Simulated scan of single mutants.
Amino acid sequence: MENKAPSLKVEGLSTFYGEVPAIMDVSMEIRRGEVVTMVGANGAGKSTVIKSVSGILKPNAGRVKLFGEDVTGYNADALVKRGLSVVPEGRRLFSEMTLKENLELGAYTRSDRSGVRRDMERVLSLFPELKPRLTTLAGKFSGGQQQMVAVARALMSNPRVLLLDEPTIGLAPVIVDRISALLLEIANSGVDILVVEQNAEVALEIAHRAYVLEGGRVIAQGDAKTLAQSEQIQKAYLGI
């Protein structure tokens, strides 16, 4: 991967829950054309990084830059309008609304109706198994299908940077493989991706670069394939 200007750059980010630090001095970046992963055990602070970057939490210290613009502390709506979208942990679908209605909500910041219709067709082409079920309630889909709906909904904002929080958690291996392939397809379409995962094996396999989070701090970073071969990472996260 050639060196490119970062689409997302995080510098010295610290976020507290009350007096308790959840993440401390986290720095990371996503370069144009990359899939980046952040791996770590449950409670390492991975979700807090996502929430702090995406405007759900306000960091106590540090900076977030999106395409060179300082967006530290911006709310989620402002960041979506600037090209950043999130697939949250647990999917957070509107279960009593149809697939079509969930997708339309993903485009709530957009006023270009013709563009939204075009993007719905484009997004559904990535998920052919969902296309015939536009009128199905989101709560009627299987867990794997709901995860696909969550990704599709995030894509409806037409993002340039996509953050995913534990996208494979609780899914069967065959669905994990499907989600992984979809993320690579999305990346190849020009969307830069950060995947936060406990499933380090899957994450390191699809990523260009990786960060390892432990106790709220980045303890290792580098080429994903190289990290996957590290004895420390293999023992701690890959069960080898």
Score class of each variant (00 low, 15 high):
I193Q: 04
R63N: 14
G222R: 12
L57G: 11
I175A: 01
R82Y: 13
V53N: 02
V151W: 00
P132T: 11
S52C: 05
Q234G: 07
A44F: 05
R133C: 01
R178L: 09
K4M: 14
L134G: 06
L126D: 03
L162P: 02
E205K: 15
N3I: 15
V10W: 05
V86H: 03
L103P: 01
I175H: 00
V176L: 00
S14R: 08
L204S: 10
A76E: 15
V116L: 05
F94S: 11
S54D: 04
V39T: 01
R32G: 13
D223W: 11
P159R: 05
T168L: 00
S230V: 07
I30S: 02
V151S: 02
P132M: 10
L99K: 01
K81D: 14
L13A: 10
I219N: 01
A5V: 15
I30L: 08
L13M: 12
I206T: 06
L164F: 02
V10P: 04
Y74I: 01
Y211Q: 09
T48N: 06
V80P: 07
V191G: 02
Y237A: 07
V10L: 06
G33C: 12
E231W: 00
E96K: 15
G18W: 08
L124G: 05
V191S: 01
A172K: 03
R133Q: 07
K58M: 15
S142L: 01
S142P: 04
G170K: 08
R117G: 10
L99A: 01
L162K: 04
N188Q: 14
S47W: 03
